[in-house]
Amino acid sequence: MTRPRPLARIAAWAVAGTVSLLFLYPYLWMALGSMRSTRAILSAPLRPWPEQWTLDAYIRLHEVAGVTLWRAVANSLGITLASTALAVGITAMGAYALCRRPGLLAFRFLRGGFLLTMMYPYMLLVIPVYIVMYRLHLLGGYTGIVLFLSLGPVQFFLFEQFFRALPAEVIEAATIDGAQEWDILWRVVMPMARPVVATVSIITFLLNWAQWFPVLVVSTTPDTYTLPVALLNLNGELGTDFQGIMALSVITTLPPAILFLIAQRRVIGGMTEGAVKG
């Protein structure tokens, strides 16, 4: 292979670097905005560091959109963690059953029905889901939100792909040893599936943390608002508290950003695989 010419490398870096900086700039601006007063921003909009390092806006944020900040943080964590755990358990068992008995008529219908659901424009599904929640008396509570967020296509495709690639001998050997199906799933298959479980868990956490429309639709009071919904409300309020909006944006963005940077290989690999499969 020929050694790349240094001039070509500098040009390539200049282009990729400019694009990267443009993509990252909103994060810097958001962080700065949370520390600078509106007046300061008006006089020097592009100043790359704050006049003073202050967390005042964060401290002032103790109440947003009718809930305490801590409640919104707890809601976000609780709803995201619970729906992630449920999604992993339910999808793993479902995908496993569908892979072990692909010929069953009921399972073929189930798979088809699931795929149809996932193709339906999400935001339009939420409207009839409101009616369903109303009929099941789940409006205003956490149960409805968590259950609704426990179903997703990426999760299903990743598990299905793993179970399909599982060598048949593994299960046969366990069957010959007289193991029950329940034990085969939990003692043999799931331990092997640990990497997929990790990938699906992280991706589901990232996706569900960002969810806002189902939360808004199912909520009847701000008590069940998550961070993105609180942010939407704060942003829509009259007499904008710009610093507060930026501070809440930072709080909403930071947890998934950190998780992603720690697990970036897994996240990018999993999302690519899930998409290519789907």
């Binding site: 993509f23 943390w209 960002a210 806002w212 961070l227 992603f260 970036q264 996240v267």
Partner: peptide, 11 residues
């Protein structure tokens, strides 16, 4: 740098 926005809450 270009993938970080994908996992940033869109809102």
């Amino acid at each position: 740098a270009v993938f970080l926005p994908v996992v940033t809450p869109d809102l």
